Simulated scan of single mutants.
Amino acid sequence: MRQIVLDTETTGINPKLGNRIIEIGCVELENRMLTGNNFHVYINPDRDSEEGALNVHGLTTEFLSDKPRFHEIVEDLRAYIQGAEVIIHNAPFDLGFLNHEFKLLNLPDFSSHIGSVIDTLVHAKELHPGKRNSLDALCDRYGISNAHRKLHGALLDSELLADVYLAMTRGQNSLGMDVEEVKPAGSELLAPVAMADIIFLPASDDELAAHVEALAGLDKAVKGQCIWTAAMAPQLPA
């Protein structure tokens, strides 16, 4: 199965306010193995990044000024992601921006080009309810080194997310409930085992007295009734 781990960086948090995508990073997995067939591009948004966003990714207007516009890279992106299962951390954010960019070019939604979406943030919240589930927190939880991550970067974050996703879902394929039951061949069937006669020997008076004495000792130890004494006590009618 072909999967694409995807991340974006943007000029702000809301495409409806004119914010744009400035970086796309994708990492390809084939049958849960990294292939090295990655997709990475910086994009000139023809606007400045908001201060909060700039503090996150550090991609300045000057750095992006000679980079291609979105319409110049969109066909390569469409071909790369076509039909794949896409893995995103907090998928509504990235999909909202990607769908918006496609709409500006009068293209079908980004979502219509892919097979399905896995949101690792949703998956992490199900696995670790009440815990921090940011990418950094998940790297710490699964022992994935992110020491080289000083600022957010789409390709770097996709590479880290790929490691997190593989760690989070490790062994998942063997946990299904539809595993076929293995039945022994005819020659391996066990012959019926004859049940031996059960012999019942009632306790003697001395044994019963010793039992009562043992229960009394337990009652004394717990300063009340032990569970066996309580169970044997006669039940009062309701």
Rank of each mutant, 00 (worst) to 15 (best):
E181V: 04
M168G: 08
P184C: 08
S111N: 12
R141M: 10
D136N: 03
L138W: 03
S134G: 11
H128D: 04
L104W: 10
I114S: 00
T169Y: 09
F110S: 06
G130I: 11
P92C: 04
L138V: 04
G186P: 00
H89C: 07
Y142A: 07
A91C: 06
K183Q: 13
S116Y: 09
L161P: 02
N106L: 11
I114T: 06
V164R: 04
F110A: 12
N90L: 08
D178A: 05
L156N: 05
L166P: 14
D157H: 09
L175T: 10
G176I: 05
N133C: 13
L166T: 13
G171H: 13
Y165A: 01
V117Q: 04
E101R: 05
E181F: 06
K125N: 15
L107R: 13
H123F: 10
Y165N: 02
L155D: 05
E181I: 09
D157S: 12
K103N: 15
Y142H: 09
D136K: 12
V193R: 05
D136I: 04
A124L: 05
Y165R: 08
D119F: 06
A154I: 01
V117K: 00
S145L: 08
D157P: 09
K131P: 00
N133K: 05
L138M: 14
D119P: 10
S134R: 00
N106H: 11
S112P: 01
S116E: 03
D136H: 01
L190F: 04
H113I: 07
L161F: 04
E101Y: 06
R149K: 15
L135G: 10
H89Q: 11
A191L: 14
Y142Q: 10
S158Y: 03
G130N: 10
N90A: 09
N133A: 05
